[in-house]
Design a protein around this nucleic acid. Structure first.
Lengths: 250, 250
DNA sequence: CGGTAAGTTGACTCCCGTCAACGGTTGTGG
DNA sequence: CCACAACCGTTGACGGGAGTCAACTTACCG
């Protein structure tokens, strides 16, 4: 496959900006530089770290999370292929949360200096990264709405819509199906539910044919129906080319 | 009072950058330009709007919020004096949430063009604004933790700690007390609780002497004790000068 | 084939929501 | 100056969604 179009970070950022061939080349080179691997349930960054690199997921799933002192854990967001783990872009020095892998993860570590060089020569790339961080903020807002207002069914349906659509944006869906490498415990930590209740909620979604979930494969036979069940409005993902005014020819 | 130090936006951004006298002057002029007033329960921006200005709270409280179709409402964050209502900085074009006033609000509307001029000549100011948006993202993350993991007591205690410390950063506390112009319904919408339960939770916090709340005045006799009850760790507010490396003399 | 992690189920409990009524305060207009 | 309305806070009774505990099954893996 053509690396210029298959790299998930490019696929995603192209939702937000029109890149020139050179832009893509630069992104590809940066992402190919310090590629790392990590197994499942590892930490890519820990609360308190002062990161000197920008970490970019190439394959696999990770998540941001926070622990409370008594062991409770909340997953704050999922980092899918093409996502930047830390959108602070070096402004914030100390991590206030951790980033851990949920599956084996391949990621690129781009050193601070490299980012600064890119920022100087390719401002459109940096702008696209800022865009991405704003979309992440919008996703966080929607999670707040889910956790605050939606019941377990709606919340689960909403999350599955979000994941499916985000994966689709980077070419990781297959028709009505996608990979869902999350345990029910992972879903529980993300949605503020108990494992038992996640299990029951999934079964209800299955029994109403809104989803099929076998092993790691999630199938959504009728995305519109699932969206309706969740009161899901995809606006907040800003995947509609809202940012394409960051034009390569400006 | 000296306007160079009394403007809440300057007080706040100075947590994140060392401004020169000229920086402050520029900020003050920009904030003095298009000052507007709005009564309580009004909308400063609505979901779907394509804002052409940056709105900066000078006095009063506002909030971001989202409505679900069936009338449920979630407050996503509180905008206090010194806060920027929309940290998109014109990258995102369409609002995916609304911003409404909770009290009478005075705010400055800074036109897009003005921001672009400032960005060209005073990059440190824009960097401080980006920094602020990252802190806002950190606050959102902490709300997710609260809504997902903390029970009503902890959640309420945590929110009151956050508000008090944020107000203190812009000089709006008076010893152990601060203004809290929120109705219990407002608190309920922010914390995903019912009004009735908010009422009971507040009473429990009062009966354990962790807070005193009379009318619109919140008193926290022992902030440390309240923080402990909430498992509140102020790191995430990044008010410790973590960003002061954005130095005026760089 | 044992061992461990993940998924499933039932019984019971509890935090928090809902409903409904009442009291206090403010402000406004007759 | 009082009456009334509107809003906010408070309280009690009751119900339900989700948590907890515990046991069991299934799947996976060396």
């Amino acid at each position: 496959m053509d690396p210029l179009t298959s790299n998930p970070i490019i696929l995603k950022l192209e939702q937000f900006a029109r890149f020139s061939a050179e832009d893509k080349q630069v992104l590809n080179l940066a992402a190919a530089e310090g590629v790392r691997q990590i197994g499942p349930r590892g930490d890519i960054m820990r609360e308190g770290d002062r990161p000197q690199t920008l970490n970019l997921i190439l394959s696999g799933w990770a998540c941001r999370y926070k622990h409370l002192e008594d062991g409770r854990r909340q997953i704050i967001s999922f980092c899918l292929p093409g996502d930047v783990c830390d959108s602070h872009l070096f402004l914030v020095r100390q991590m206030d949360h951790s980033v851990g892998s949920l599956t084996p993860v391949t990621f690129a570590q781009i050193p601070r200096r490299r980012i600064e060089e890119i920022a100087a020569k390719y401002p459109r790339i940096i702008q696209a990264l800022w865009w991405d961080s704003l979309v992440n903020a919008a996703i966080q807002r929607e999670w707040i709405v889910s956790l605050g207002q939606r019941d377990a069914m709606e919340r689960m349906a909403h999350l599955l819509c979000e994941i499916f659509i985000r994966l689709r944006a980077v070419g990781l869906t297959d028709g009505h199906a996608c990979d869902l490498p999350l345990t029910q415990a992972g879903l529980a930590d993300a949605m503020g539910l108990s494992v038992v209740h996640v299990n029951r909620t999934l079964q209800e979604l299955r029994s109403t044919k809104l989803i099929a979930l076998k092993g790691r494969t999630l199938t959504i036979p009728d995305l519109r129906a699932l969206q309706d069940a969740a009161q899901f409005n995809p606006n907040y993902l800003h995947l509609d080319g809202d940012g394409r005014h960051l034009d390569a020819n400006e």
